[in-house]
Design a protein around this nucleic acid. Structure first.
Lengths: 337, 337
DNA sequence: GTGAAAGCGCTAACAA
DNA sequence: TTGTTAGCGCTTTCAC
């Protein structure tokens, strides 16, 4: 441990201390070249005791590899990018790769500035992420000379794209409701313009049949309330389960049902989507919901840019990553087998 | 616009194209040295048409300045770091500075890895941020040779530290309630162990007097419910206003009051803290609350590391940044003057 | 097995 | 006004 924090120690200092040339020192430290084991360990010991840290800039200049990647996102405040970022960071830090955070706020000019900055800094690759899997970032990354991976945002045809599997996740939800004996299931979800809304509805219909009821509205608690009002105003059977397009709607639904004197999950099971902790856990009863595993998606994105950066071949196309059911109390049923 | 994305263009190519030496090219592009305006613009034109982008690595190697900073945070999923990061990024991108995102999850080993990686990459400075202003990150940054700014986390005595002004924010809240004619104000807040809880209570007492009632619990909606139950179970006067320690508690309080048939804000005014959109806006009625201006705090942190990195002197000590009252409907009253 | 020398892309003295 | 030269800190042939 070098206590003196005067000047940064360079490989020259290590070489001096070990009584070798800097060439030998370099080879010793990088486990390349050939030399006696004794020399190698002597150099390493010297480096160690001097607290030598190679200058990544100098290294990058030669190796054309900076061990940095850029993470572009337009979901600055959102709940989607955050776990995704954590996953990316977690995956890459183990490989000595650092992540540039670039929030672009849907602003093309800002996006360009960030991309240019990344390019100047010679990032080894870029991960583009967003808040909707059916929207593109306001910048064209397809002509860059470095690898790009799209995560939770739409990418070009021949790109490597990672999204969560809305269909599979919704199937989990629906099947869970069926396993619990629910049959009159209604789907209360977001605006039809979202691709994921379509996917989730498709899964709903696959289980419930073509005559199931899908209600579109906003992604809000208010819409959950309103949907319940409409459902219970109709004549005929009321549902015994409601599959909601997200946790906010689900919370609105649960609150509305309780206000009507209905028991959740006794009278009606409610299931959400997103597993947004703050919403799902605060609902009374806490929401059973579908988690999109965004952190894992982030890890995978990290893994893939890294592979690409190392010149490995990666099959282009859209990869759908599985969602996972998180069982709490709003559907009844115990821990999932 | 160079369409051919074959090889990166270097300053050598620009010099060739402009018919000058690389030294002249360098000076022309950096607006240093002296030469005819004609030469300078000729070089710039050549650079432009070739799509020249200087290699930041090479530059960094000489200038000892990488135009990167590291942002350390242990609040990976949290609502605090996110706007803060956005502010930092926004502030720095204008200066050509990129931000390394490092989420350390309260793990000392992970923190060290990240810090080492940043040091290797020669960041110009580090911003340390967290989720509590009275807790330190699990890593010692005080002995580094580069500037460190602490934002929304506790730092050493002689460091530059940025926090939001809980006292001032709470004063805003309390005064707003008084302006609306409320006098029997109760403070329902989080655990006493939080420094910000103490600060907010201090402001509460400054307005309400020493005999005001402060109720400590968890930062949850459930605690909001419970607090209301307790308050209305007491004999004697019930409050006409409740100042809550955060928005979640406030939401619990509002819901509990409504469930008791009380009108908010007609019978009781409720005010929150944090302005956590998802909670504040979904509450019925939407919460009037205190915003900590974390994005601005992030910007200021960016400004300060940058100043420090440029060798400018910055007065050490704790800087408290003002909060801002966000008026919605839970207190009554109109737009603030 | 080890070291001298060239060079990554750029900037900055110093000459011319 | 412009160009030559010497590095920044490191890796990597290629001699010895």
């Amino acid at each position: 441990m070098a206590l003196a924090s005067t000047k940064r120690v360079r490989i020259y200092d290590v070489a001096q201390a070990a009584g070798v040339s800097i060439a030998t020192a370099s080879k010793a430290l990088n486990d390349t070249g050939r030399m006696t084991e004794e020399t190698r360990s002597r150099v390493k010991a010297a480096a160690n005791s001097l607290g030598f840290r190679p200058n990544a800039m100098a290294r990058a200049l030669i190796q054309r590899r900076t061990f940095t990647v850029g993470l572009l996102t337009n979901d600055t405040y959102g709940r989607f990018t955050l776990p995704l970022m954590a996953g990316v960071s977690e995956q890459l830090v183990d490989h000595g790769v650092s992540v540039f955070l670039c929030s672009i706020e849907d602003d093309p000019a800002l996006a360009k500035i960030h991309v240019d900055a990344m390019l100047d800094k010679q990032v080894d690759g870029i991960i583009a992420s967003g808040k909707r899997i059916d929207r593109r970032l306001p910048v064209d990354l397809s002509q860059l000379d470095i690898p790009v991976v799209y995560a939770f945002t739409d990418g070009p045809e021949d790109a490597v794209t990672l999204v969560s599997d809305d269909y599979q996740g919704s199937m989990q939800a629906m099947q869970w409701l069926r396993e619990l004996g629910r049959s009159r299931i209604v789907h209360v979800t977001g605006p039809q313009t979202f691709a994921s809304v379509g996917e989730r509805a498709r899964a709903y219909h696959a289980v419930q049949g073509g005559d199931g009821l899908v209600m579109h509205g906003s992604w809000s608690e208010a819409w959950g309330h309103e949907a319940v009002a409409r459902l219970w105003a109709r004549k005929g059977d009321t549902p015994d389960a409601i599959f909601c397009g997200n946790d906010q709607i689900a919370r609105g639904v649960v609150d509305a049902l309780r206000e009507r004197g209905l028991d959740v999950p006794g009278d009606v099971s409610v299931i959400g989507f997103d597993n947004w902790e703050i919403v799902a856990a605060a609902t009374r009863p806490p929401l059973t919901t579908v988690d999109m595993n965004l952190k894992e998606l982030g890890r995978e994105a990290g893994r893939l840019v890294l592979a690409l950066a190392e010149g490995k071949a990666v099959e282009p196309g859209v990869r759908k990553l599985p969602c996972q059911l998180v069982v709490r109390e709003s559907c009844g049923g115990g821990l999932r087998s």
